[in-house]
Amino acid sequence: MLVEMKDIVKRYGNLLALDYFDLEAEKGEIYGLLGPNGSGKTTAINCMLSLIKFDNGTVNLFGEKMSPKRDDLKERIGLVMQDIGVYDELTVEENITYFCGLYISDRKKRKAYVEEAIDFVGMDSHRKFKPPRLSGGLKRRLNLACGIAHKPDLIILDEPTVAVDPQSRNHILENVRALAQEGKTIIYTTHYMEEVEAICDRLSIIDRGKVLVRGTTEEIKAMSSSGEIIHVKAFHLEDDLLDRIRDMKEVDAVNYEPAAGQLVVYFSKGESGLMSLLRLFEEKNTDFFDLHVKTPSLNDVFLEITGKELRDND
């Protein structure tokens, strides 16, 4: 195990920020930490890196016990924090050089690494800018570059894509995947489940400092008790058709709002009823449009376990 956190307890006064938190990540994998605001993701990372003291538990990185004094371990770690940590007084290039230089003494090597990092976040045209002149998204990208320029073996990304536009986000996600392919281990926290689904090999869903479930995306989705949900717009549906749909053996529930022409069909777990549904519509010669199929998401699993949404829709 490259990262091994066991039974971590962290209290802030009365608030239990981490409640016997566990995390295990293997070399070369992208491990996701998914949880709503205030669930303890950042706190978990701070404990992992000995940036704060915790009340119980052990942390092993690279198979060795982590502590604030373990400079040999720190050398192999890159952290991209949720809060932007760059110097307003230094240009983009200088910022990256400064932080990279804390790890890499060799000038030539450092220069090459800095170039690669600038490339990684696509900031070549902004290299002489100082952070106050950068937009929020560009600042985030600089923040990312500062954390990974020294090519660490273990990379911790704490919500690196907040406020980054979709295009740059995809660029970053692709690069993160490329890093993992080079054999780097990545811990990725976010509250965007699409990102987790897109890049994480395994993940933990956490809430109030507790790990609720862990596993691969597929495994976790499979935990959901519900199956497909089909939304379709159709006006003037005959009662007969609705009854036929209700009678389908795969269907759990049907909800129709005639005024809005909105039909929602819930299928039971593991069943796919799209084809049968379409056949019924054809049989009755009924017009429909705007059909979409939703498979259970990580959010649904979270909803089922905690009774609340993972995040507001955004």
Partner: peptide
């Protein structure tokens, strides 16, 4: 110091002793 914010954290996590 790490507790003072992002920049402090960045320095604290580097392999250069405090």
């Amino acid at each position: 110091e790490a507790y003072t914010g992002a920049l402090g954290k960045r320095l604290a996590i580097s392999p250069v002793s405090r």
